[in-house]
Design a protein around this nucleic acid. Structure first.
Length: 590
DNA sequence: GTAGGGTTAG
């Protein structure tokens, strides 16, 4: 073994770190310590970077303590590295503490903090940090702009983004590729797709897979799938290879639109590009097939992934949950944990929804209670809402109320909405009023609230209440967004000819209501309008409130249609319903 | 002799 001095140790550590061999870098640092050498600030920098990349905050903390002992923590590089390490590992408070204690900060230290705030979702602080650094006359370079533009994207702050853009042009950074990418992304995220496209048009240097993917995602978010696809085709025409980000964005769009054909074509391209094993791409494929109603294809894609990550498992649990196959969702969850894959927040949302849609109340409660204790996942507002939903759907309104009162915070909109829906289903006017009041404060523009409360009043025979709800909707200019479906029309058939009587024909009071809160899902059109459908696949991609429809009429209409035409029909609201021979897979439990 | 920050996805 050759004699090593501190410089050669340091060179080794930095070499490993720069080549992406982070574990080696960390190990070498430890060996150096065992050999009795005291690290230099250079060695600290590389070792801290390596533990940042590995995400091992424990080792990072050790390095921090040691650097304090040796008096390196106030150094420019070591301080910035430590702040970076803490913020990237999610310890923003510690990052701030290190940063604040640094006697001397440069643009790199500031960028680290701006980026740290952004990555931890604290966009406001990120933009304040930028303003502060400009005020303190710290040099700004293109890195600073990239990070700050990320914060604008998160804040949806188009005016701040625009002023940054002109600042960038003034300083001559607009041709930097990373800046162009960050600009395109910012404009896409704030929804200003014209400006996003303009950045790419005026600056061909910046037309690359990252910026194009940002633009595609911008169109996808606005449901302008055609435009998203044309950017994709243009990208390919220019010889730019789409990557895993591009594919997952587009496939996600296909999932949301239940665009099976497009999705399957993209799947073929994914295979050609050897990206089918990417954790994001495979998981979004699982999700896409699930959302298109093809559970088997979903499972097939999943089975082809060698070592599925948590993301892919989550998708599969989600697919079963969405299709009302709660027991299968539970089974997949158990397989996942048996294989040593750690469930996260999303897993629990999916499994709780699965339980909720199947009336698996005890199982759901057990999962909720085990989240923190067994799996170390702290319940978040969405999990609390799932439990409200779980109890509410099962008609346990007393328990749901008790749960709400014991929650550490107020339920979110989904929570109140579930509670309100349950109050409607089980005819609880008092509780319903409270839930509606809370929901209107949270989401004044949500027409579903007015509809549900109005229905509660109507079934209690309180027409004054019904009228006041209508007035509120008129005065508040609340309009119900119609749901819609993609259906392949292959002929003409009137289901009324088969003696289907819509409920607005049956009940005088409801007729008016139906017109007011017209529930325009595809099935209503199918029941009224002359359409014979290709009943293999009927999708409703919009999460609308069937529960708002007093007599669950769409639901019963589809059951009826499935019997009349003798075909299987799959319809999606906030889950999937498989209809056949006059029955639905949800057994009317939703 | 040896060291730091930036863009796209579930």
């Amino acid at each position: 073994m050759p004699q090593r001095n501190i410089v050669s140790w340091t060179a080794m550590i930095s070499g490993f770190s720069q080549n992406g061999q982070f574990l080696q870098a960390v190990k070498t640092f430890s060996s150096m310590r065992l050999a009795g050498e005291n690290p230099t600030q250079f060695a600290f920098s590389s070792a801290i970077q390596a533990s940042t990349s590995l995400g091992v905050v424990e080792f990072g903390k050790e390095l921090h303590c040691l650097s304090v002992k040796l008096g390196f923590n106030f150094e420019l590089f070591v301080g910035s590295n430590l702040a970076d390490m803490y913020s990237k590992c999610g310890y923003l408070v510690d990052a701030c503490r290190v940063f604040d204690e640094m006697p001397c900060k440069d643009e790199v230290s500031w960028t680290t903090m701006i980026d740290g705030y952004t990555k931890n979702g604290n966009f406001e602080e990120a933009s304040l940090a930028f303003k502060k650094m400009v005020y303190e006359e710290v040099n700004v370079d293109h890195h600073v702009f990239c990070s700050t533009l990320g914060a604008c994207a998160g804040l949806k702050a188009s005016s701040l983004g625009k002023s940054l853009h002109s600042f960038i042009v003034k300083l001559g950074f607009e041709l930097e590729i990373f800046v162009g990418n960050a600009l395109t992304n910012m404009y896409s995220k704030v929804g200003d797709l014209e400006s996003a496209s303009r950045v790419l048009e005026t600056n061909s240097e910046c037309r690359n897979v990252v910026s194009c993917t940002s633009l595609i995602d911008g169109y996808v978010e606005k449901d302008q799938i055609d435009k998203a696809l044309s950017v994709f085709l243009e990208l390919k025409r220019q010889g730019i290879e789409p990557n895993e980000f591009t594919f997952s964005t587009l496939i996600k769009a296909c999932a949301n639109q239940a665009a099976l054909e497009q999705g399957a074509q993209l799947h073929a391209q994914v295979i050609k590009s050897h990206l089918e094993k990417d954790p994001f791409v495979s998981s979004v494929l699982v999700d896409m097939y699930g959302k298109c109603g093809l559970i088997d294809s979903s499972v097939q894609v999943f089975d082809r992934v060698k070592d599925p990550t948590g993301i892919a498992w989550n998708s599969l649990v989600g697919v079963f949950a969405q299709h009302g196959l709660g027991r299968d969702a539970v089974r997949i969850f158990e397989q996942m944990t048996c294989k040593g894959v750690k469930p996260n927040e999303i897993t629990f949302v999916n499994i709780l929804r699965g339980c909720s849609h199947n009336g698996l109340v005890e199982e759901g409660l057990e999962y909720f209670n085990s989240m923190g204790k067994v799996y170390g996942v702290a319940p978040r507002p969405e999990h609390y809402s799932c439990v409200i939903d779980l109890l509410g759907r099962a008609g346990r309104l007393d328990q749901a109320e008790e749960f709400i009162n014991k929650m550490p915070y107020e339920p979110n909109a989904f929570g109140w909405c579930s509670y309100l829906g349950a109050c409607r289903t089980y005819g609880d006017k008092e509780r319903g009023e409270l839930a509606a009041e809370k929901l209107m404060a949270l989401e004044p523009e949500n027409s579903g609230t007015h509809v549900l409360l109005s229905n509660i009043y109507a079934s209690a025979g309180q027409w004054e209440g019904v009228r006041s709800m209508r007035k509120m909707m008129r005065d508040g200019k609340v309009t119900k967004l119609p749901g819609y479906s993609w259906v392949d029309v292959v002929g003409i058939q009137y289901i009324r000819d088969h003696a289907f009587i819509p409920w607005w024909d049956k009940k005088v009071v409801c007729r008016e209501e139906c017109q007011l809160f017209q529930h325009r899902c595809g099935m209503e059109r199918a029941s009224q309008a002359p359409s014979k459908l290709n009943f293999d696949r009927v999708m409703n991609p919009i999460y609308h409130h069937w529960r708002a429809c007093q007599e669950m009429d769409c639901h019963s209409a589809i059951k009826f249609i499935s019997k009349v035409v003798g075909r299987k029909i799959i319809v999606r609201d906030n889950r999937f319903h498989h209809f056949g021979n006059g029955l639905c897979s949800c057994a009317d439990f939703w």
